[in-house]
Each structure stands twice: as C-alpha cells, then as structure tokens.
C-alpha cells in the first residue's frame, strides 16, 4: 500500500503515512459509478454537491477518473454487463481505497432481486466499507454515511498512535 520510498528512517515513514491519512480524511476525492441504478440515487448524490447540501465545503470532491479517487460511491444493483466494469474501476483506484454502497439496491439488490440480469448488491463483486440504505437515501443520509466512514478512519489513526 505504501508508496513512501523504502529505506527512510522509521520515524519519517510514520510521519508521511500520518500526513497521507490526514489529507485523506480532510479532503477525500470520490468517484461515482452507476452499475445498474434507476437514477434515483444518482440524482441525490448530485444534489449533495449543489448549494443546499454542498459537500465540497468539507473538501469532498467528485472526480472523473478512478485513478484520482479515494472513495468509490456505487449506486444500483450490479448487472451482468456492468460487473466487469465495476471491478475494473475498483482495480484502477490507488490504495488505500474505500467503497460506499448508496441505496437499497446497492446494499442488497433491493427491488430488483430475482431479475435475470442482476447479480445482487455491490458486495457481491467488491468489498464495501459502508452501506447507506434508502430508496433513495436522502442527501443528508449520504453525507452522514461519508462522515461515518471518515470517522472510522480517524479512529484508526488514533488507534495507530496509541497502539
């Protein structure tokens, strides 16, 4: 996971890792992938970027390329067609990476369970760090999910320091 150059003193490595974690928590860049969603969650994700909710004030930014992103925000159940694409987008993201599944369909397949072209929730294909249920979740719920994920990173950081 580390791209800190080898051979540095341990204290330096630790400091650089801490710096990376700090910047990740305070300004996570996200990418959005729709693997078969009805669009409902997608417009709510877009709504979180617009003036009423405006997550950019917390440093959260929606990115175009998976190679620039820390967080993958997935919507919709995974369809057979989109399954490989989802994997590829996930593989292209640099480590460490986090996945948020937004909406009931992304969590479990939702209303589309049993449809012949649907694999199921996002966790059938890639590991998921946070689930946000709702059909669709309100923008507040999406922001809350992202904040909870970042909070868990913060705790990790504290644990690293003390441990």
């Amino acid at each position: 996971m580390s791209d800190v150059p080898a051979g540095l003193p341990k204290a330096w490595t630790k400091m650089l890792e801490g710096l990376k974690n700090w910047s990740r928590i305070y300004s996570p860049w996200a990418i959005h992938f729709n693997s078969g969603s009805c669009n409902g969650c997608d417009i709510e994700i877009l709504a979180t970027l617009t003036p009423r909710y405006d997550v950019e004030r917390f440093g959260i930014k929606l990115q175009g390329s998976p190679r620039h992103a820390d967080v993958l925000i997935c919507t919709g159940p995974v369809t057979l067609q989109a399954r490989d694409r989802l994997k590829r987008v996930y593989d292209q993201m640099p480590d460490p990476k986090f996945v948020i599944a937004v909406g009931s369909c992304a969590t479990s397949g939702g209303v589309f369970q049993g449809c012949y072209n649907v694999v199921g929730g996002i966790d059938q294909v890639i590991p998921v760090n946070a689930f946000i249920p709702g059909c669709p979740p309100r923008p507040e719920a999406i922001i809350d999910g992202v904040v909870k994920l970042l909070g868990s990173l913060q705790q990790k950081k504290v644990a690293e320091k003390t441990g």
């Binding site: 693997s35 078969g36 969603s37 159940p77 369809t79 067609q81 694409r85 589309f112 449809c115 072209n117």
Partner: peptide
C-alpha cells in the same frame, strides 16, 4: 449496462 430484466 443498466439492463436489469425489469419486464421479465
């Protein structure tokens, strides 16, 4: 990519 099989 978002064909889910709704009609069926």
């Amino acid at each position: 990519y978002v064909h889910r099989g709704l009609e069926k």
